[in-house]
C-alpha cells in the first residue's frame, strides 16, 4: 500500500491513548471488547491502549483447545491463570514484566478495501517502525508476526465487532522459557536443554535487543505513534470499568468460556 494512503487512513482520526494500569487478565480481555464496541458505536474516538498485566497468565486464542495447549497441573502449580480471548491465533504465556501488549480499536471503515490479511500488517506497521527507530532490525512477517534478525518478537490477533476492528499485539520483552515450556505444551517433549536452547534462538525479546527498560520502550513507542498520527489522552471511566466487570462475570471469567474447547 502506498505510504501516503496509509498515513491518510491513520490521520483521518483524532486518536486517544489509554495508558497502562496493572489490570487483571480477564479484565484486559473484557476491556478490549467494551472499547471495541464503543469505537464501533462512535461513543469513543479510535484508541490505542497499552495493557498492564497484574499477574501471570496463559492467554488462549479463541479457537484453541485447553488440553492441547496447556499443562494444567503445572499451570496451577505456578499460579498461572488461564484465560481465553475473543481473537484467534496462538496461546501466549505472559508474565507482568515480560510482555508489552497493546490494542488498537478502530472503525472498520479505516481498513475498507483491504483484505483481512493485509489489515494485520497495516495495524502493526507503526510498531515495526517504532522498533526500528529503537535500533531493532524488525520487520513484519505475514500473517501476524513481528520478527527481527535477532529472532521473533511478537504476534498480532484481530476480532471484529459492531463495525469496529480490534487489533492487539503482544511483544516479548523478557522471556522465562523454562517456565513457558512447563506450562505450555508447545514442544513439551523437547524439555531437554537442547529444546530450551532452540526456543531461545527462535525468539528475540526486546530487553535483549534494546537493553532498555520496559517502560522506556513503551514510552518511546507511544511517542512514535503520537508524532506520526497524533494522540491525546483518553479516559477509562467508572462506567467503562463496570461494563467490563459485568463481561468478566458473565463470560470471560466463566468456565464455559475458558473451556469452550476443553
Amino acid at each position: 500500500m502506498a505510504e501516503r494512503d496509509t498515513l491518510d487512513r491513520w490521520r483521518q482520526y483524532d486518536w486517544q491513548l489509554i495508558a497502562a494500569e496493572p489490570t487483571e487478565p480477564h479484565m484486559n480481555l473484557a476491556l478490549d471488547e467494551v472499547l471495541t464496541l464503543q469505537v464501533g458505536q462512535g461513543l469513543r474516538p479510535p484508541t490505542l491502549r497499552i495493557w498492564g498485566w497484574s499477574r501471570r497468565c496463559i492467554v488462549l486464542g479463541r479457537f484453541q483447545s485447553v488440553r492441547n495447549e496447556v499443562d494444567e497441573a503445572n499451570a496451577a502449580k505456578h499460579e498461572v491463570q488461564l484465560i481465553r480471548r475473543i481473537s484467534g491465533g496462538g496461546a501466549m504465556f505472559i508474565e507482568p514484566e515480560g510482555a508489552i501488549t497493546w490494542s488498537i480499536y478502530a472503525p472498520e471503515e479505516m481498513v475498507k478495501g483491504m483484505s483481512f490479511a493485509d489489515s494485520y500488517a497495516f495495524f502493526d506497521g507503526w510498531a515495526v517502525d517504532a522498533l526500528r527507530e529503537l535500533g531493532v532490525d524488525a520487520w513484519y512477517e505475514p500473517l501476524n508476526d513481528i520478527t527481527s534478525s535477532g529472532g521473533k518478537i511478537g504476534g498480532a490477533a484481530q476480532a471484529r465487532r459492531g463495525g469496529a476492528v480490534l487489533h492487539h499485539t503482544t511483544m516479548a520483552y523478557q522471556m522465562n522459557i523454562p517456565l513457558m515450556l512447563e506450562v505450555l505444551r508447545i514442544g513439551q517433549e523437547k524439555l531437554s536443554d537442547k529444546g530450551i536452547k532452540s526456543a531461545e534462538k527462535r525468539v528475540g525479546p526486546l530487553r535483549q535487543q534494546t537493553e532498555l527498560p520496559r517502560d522506556v520502550i513503551i514510552e518511546k513507542m507511544v511517542d512514535f505513534f503520537r508524532d506520526r498520527y497524533g494522540l491525546e489522552s483518553g479516559v477509562l471511566g467508572s462506567e467503562d470499568i463496570a461494563e467490563a466487570e459485568a463481561l468478566v462475570r458473565d463470560r470471560f471469567g466463566t468456565r464455559d468460556w475458558v473451556y469452550f474447547l476443553p
Binding site: 479457537f63 483447545s65 484467534g88 496461546a91 483481512f116 501476524n144 474447547l261
Partner: peptide, 15 residues
C-alpha cells in the same frame, strides 16, 4: 467432533 487451532476465523461462530 471438536475442531481447534491457532487460525483466525470471522465470524467466530462459523466454527
Amino acid at each position: 467432533v471438536e475442531v481447534h487451532g491457532d487460525f483466525f476465523l470471522y465470524p467466530e461462530d462459523v466454527l
